[in-house]
Each structure stands twice: as structure tokens, then as C-alpha cells.
């Protein structure tokens, strides 16, 4: 827990530094017509650094043995996270609908051990309904891949 706390606060402090850096470029003064573009970001960033330093100090003083996440906890979390990442990555190549079909099917079979028929049913019907709702009904285009292109979309 302590390590995670230290890391997070350091990262946020770094972010604050980045903000301050950009704010200086934009001008942090108070012009004739009020603050310049960088005025608020500068103080937000600066305060962020100070606040994070205080959090770091707090965390460093505290010593608790609890870990941020146990091995048993991390397993299921990753089992949700990495397929979700794969879904988004696949969307770039295959388009959203095909990626969603693959992802839903894979997940149902892998985690839920559902019967193949259920898996196929949901994995095909769900993207199809999504397709109809978004592309046909609401006319909101989603990312599309080779399959849709082949079908004339």
C-alpha cells in the first residue's frame, strides 16, 4: 500500500511539473484584461506538486504491511483488464463489431464456460444489435474493419 501510494503521488507530482512547464510557455502573468492562458494551469500545477509532496511525506512516515493488491486479487482484475485492452486493440484492425463479437465470445467461453451455442448466440447477436442500433437507427458510425468494407459499409 505504501509503495503504491508513493508511486502514485510521485507520478501526479511529475504531472504537476509538466503542467507548470507548459504554463510558463503560455505566460503566467496577470495581464490588463485578467489572467493569461497559463495563469490557472501554473497555480494548479504548482499546488499539485505541493499537495503531492505532502501526500508523499504522509505515506513515507506511515509504515503498514498491507500490500496494495494481493496475488489472489490481481488475478481476476487482470482477467477483466487484458481482454478489454485486447478488444480496443483489435478494434483498430477489425472494426468494433467484429472485435466485440470475438471478445464477447472469448470471454463467455473462457470465464463463464458457457455452452458453445449460447456463446455463439450472444457473440453474434449482441454486435449485430449494436450495429443495427448505432449504424442503422441512430446513424452514429463506429470504427469499421475489412468485413464491413467488404459488405459495403
Amino acid at each position: 500500500m505504501r509503495l503504491a501510494d508513493l508511486l502514485t503521488a510521485s507520478f501526479l507530482a511529475l504531472l504537476g511539473g509538466l503542467v507548470v512547464f507548459d504554463a510558463v510557455r503560455l505566460g503566467i502573468g496577470w495581464g490588463t484584461d485578467g489572467p493569461q492562458s497559463g495563469f490557472f494551469p501554473f497555480w494548479l500545477g504548482a499546488l499539485m506538486i505541493v499537495a503531492c509532496a505532502a501526500v508523499l511525506f504522509q505515506a513515507a512516515r506511515r509504515s503498514d504491511g498491507t500490500s496494495f493488491v494481493t496475488r489472489q486479487q490481481l488475478g481476476p482484475v487482470l482477467k477483466v483488464l487484458w481482454p478489454a485492452i485486447a478488444l480496443v486493440a483489435l478494434t483498430h484492425w477489425l472494426g468494433l463489431y467484429v472485435a466485440a463479437a470475438l471478445y464477447t465470445g472469448f470471454y463467455m467461453r473462457w470465464i463463464g464456460r458457457h455452452a458453445w451455442l449460447t456463446v455463439l448466440g450472444v457473440a453474434i447477436l449482441f454486435p449485430l444489435v449494436t450495429f443495427l442500433v448505432f449504424e442503422k437507427w441512430f446513424l452514429v458510425p463506429m470504427p469499421k474493419g475489412p468485413l464491413e468494407a467488404w459488405l459495403g459499409y
Binding site: Y97, A101, A123, I124, L128
Partner: peptide, 19 residues
């Protein structure tokens, strides 16, 4: 499964064959 999706997409879009 991908084939199934292809078929269903094709079915749904039969009405929109380019001219």
C-alpha cells in the same frame, strides 16, 4: 464464428447492394 457473423451481416444488409 466469424463466418456466422459474416452471414448475418450479409443477411441484414441485403437491401443495400451498391448500384
Amino acid at each position: 464464428m466469424k463466418l456466422g457473423a459474416v452471414l448475418l451481416f450479409a443477411l441484414a444488409l441485403l437491401t443495400v447492394i451498391p448500384g
